[in-house]
Each structure stands twice: as structure tokens, then as C-alpha cells.
């Protein structure tokens, strides 16, 4: 199946000379949720803005649904819904009026029944004609999503949907994203919260300083790059790590009862069997064992640092 969004060798240099994107290649498949993960200023918003037509590419090509976003911008943009990072809404409008305007702007015939359905689906059914200035931040964000969905796009871009949003609202937003995906919408979201990418994305693209460092399925990424930690609890505290165990690079917890062994799951040998044997040989008695998978956060920090 051809990619619904295809970005090829995309560069973007702003007028002030700043190079925000340095040769980005990215393919997004229909129906997936992909998270563009990167620190502030990595080029996430520039990438999205360039795909959506808000900024023009310096070089490279972008196609959406097979249409070039520059030469066939009408066909390409018709398939895109964009939810911006800022809560850009006219305070004196109402959710119904503003979504009606968005739909019209995309040249779609009026369809209030559909717009009501979208707004209701986003739990705004009782706010259809309320002044936008009276809505809470979370509601405003959902109005923006409704506007982006008003013309029935195939691809939805969410730029930092949960930036500056409290935990409860963030969970709510994730539920909204889940629902959208169930309807078959392809979703591209940017975030600098690793937790968010981990919670909702199928694939993760790590972006930093205008370059995509890697694109990988989330579970694959975590499996491949993940390091695991084996934590050994001892029955009695020890003052220092016995000489015989020096080669394992163990770290000793403060209370002397905890030993951490870091190993790579992708390695041919994890060394666990040998370690446990040597532990017994050194006369240490174990009370408990558990392993911990490293989080995306640790992977991410590792990657970004490596690139620096």
C-alpha cells in the first residue's frame, strides 16, 4: 500500500537563514498513529506546517494521498485536517459557527448534521452555540479538533495536542485520539512528552535539530534499543561489591541490599546465568529478583545526546 503522506528530502530554510529541516524523509501509512518526538525547537512544527501548506518547502517534495502539496495543493490539502499548537480561536464565535466556516473554507457543501455529530462526539454537544470565550482550555482544544475534522479529512495533524495540559485532560485527549483512529483517520502528532508517544503511537519518529534520527514501530523500538535492569535484593547488606563480581559492572544501592545489573536484551548472551552463579559463589544470599525495561524516555535521551 502506498504511503498516505510521503516526505522526500525536505529542507526548510527560513528567511533569517535558520535551517529548520535538513533533508527529512518520512512515509506515513494510512490508518496509523505516528508520533514525531523531539525536544523544543527540533523542527516538529515546521515539518507539520510545511506539509499542511503554512510554510513553503525550500527543497524536496511532499505528497499527501499521492498529490504534491505544491503543484496539486487543492487535492492534497483537502485530505488534511490541522490542529494547531496554540488555541487559535475567535472568542466571540461559537463552536457551530466556527466549524461551519472551516468546512466552507475547504469548499465542502454545508452539512450541519455532520458538524453537530462531530462536536457531540467530542463531548461538545451541549456547547454548540456557546461563546468560545466561555469554554475551558480542554474544550477549546476539542473545538479546534472539530474544526480540523469539519471537512472529513483522511489525515489529521495534531501539533502538541497536550502541551500545557493537566494529566486528566491529557488522558481525555488520548481517548479522543483513540476514537479517531477507530474511525480510520491517520494521525500524525508532535509531542515532546515521551509518555504520550509511548501511550498512543504505533510508530515513533525521533526528530532533533531538523533531522529524523529514526523511525520505528514503538514496541520494536523499545525492544531493540531497550536495556533491561536486573535488580537483585540481598538478604543481608554488603559494604562493597565482592572482587569476583567486579567484571559485571554492578551498582550497589545505598542501603547495601540492592544490586543493579544492566544488560542488553538484544545481546547474544545476557550474562544473567553466569552472574547468578557467581553471586552464589561469592556467598551472597538473594531475597528477590526483578527486571525493569528502560522507558522510551531513556532511549530518547540517549539518542538526542548521541546526535549532539
Amino acid at each position: 500500500m502506498p504511503a498516505i503522506v510521503k516526505v522526500t528530502d525536505l529542507t526548510k530554510r527560513y528567511n533569517d537563514g535558520f535551517e529548520a529541516l535538513k533533508g527529512v524523509n518520512l512515509e506515513i501509512e494510512e490508518g496509523e498513529i505516528i508520533a514525531l518526538l523531539g525536544p523544543n525547537g527540533a523542527g516538529k512544527t515546521t515539518l507539520i506546517s510545511t506539509i499542511c501548506g503554512i510554510t513553503m518547502p525550500t527543497s524536496g517534495t511532499i505528497t499527501v494521498g499521492g498529490y504534491d502539496t505544491v503543484t496539486k495543493y487543492r487535492e492534497a490539502r483537502a485530505q488534511i485536517g490541522l490542529v494547531p499548537q496554540e488555541l487559535n480561536l475567535e472568542p466571540f464565535e461559537t463552536p457551530m459557527r466556527t466549524t461551519r466556516f472551516s468546512r466552507g473554507l475547504f469548499g465542502k457543501p454545508p452539512n450541519d448534521a455532520y458538524l453537530k455529530e462531530v462536536l457531540t462526539e467530542l463531548s461538545l454537544g451541549d456547547k454548540l452555540d456557546a461563546g468560545i470565550r466561555t469554554l475551558s482550555g480542554g474544550m477549546k482544544r476539542r473545538v479546534l479538533i472539530a474544526k480540523a475534522l469539519s471537512h472529513e479529512p483522511r489525515v489529521l495533524f495534531l501539533d502538541e495536542p497536550t502541551a500545557g495540559v493537566d494529566v486528566e485532560l491529557r488522558k481525555e485527549m488520548w481517548a479522543v485520539v483513540d476514537k479517531l483512529r477507530a474511525n480510520g483517520t491517520t494521525i500524525i502528532l508532535t509531542t515532546h512528552y515521551i509518555e504520550e508517544a509511548e501511550a498512543i503511537a504505533d510508530r515513533i519518529a525521533v526528530i532533533n535539530k531538523g533531522e529524523i534520527l529514526l523511525v520505528e514501530r514503538k514496541d520494536e523500538l523499545m525492544r531493540q534499543m531497550g536495556q533491561k535492569v536486573l535488580r537483585i535484593e540481598l538478604t543481608a547488606p554488603i559494604a562493597e561489591i565482592p572482587e569476583a563480581l567486579a567484571a559485571y559492572g554492578l551498582s550497589l544501592g545505598e542501603d547495601g541490599c540492592m544490586l543493579d545489573y544492566t544488560y542488553d536484551v538484544t545481546g547474544e548472551r545476557t550474562g544473567i546465568t553466569r552472574l547468578l552463579g557467581d553471586l552464589a559463589g561469592a556467598g551472597l544470599k538473594m531475597r528477590d529478583l526483578h527486571t525493569k525495561q528502560s522507558s522510551l524516555e531513556e532511549i530518547f535521551v540517549g539518542l538526542v545526546k548521541e546526535g549532539a
Partner: peptide, 11 residues
């Protein structure tokens, strides 16, 4: 107010 993004990203 920032809503110009809509005009720029619409067909």
C-alpha cells in the same frame, strides 16, 4: 488572533 493558519492550510 492566529486563525490565519486555516486560510493558509485550506485548498
Amino acid at each position: 488572533i492566529g486563525t490565519i493558519y486555516e486560510h493558509l492550510s485550506a485548498p
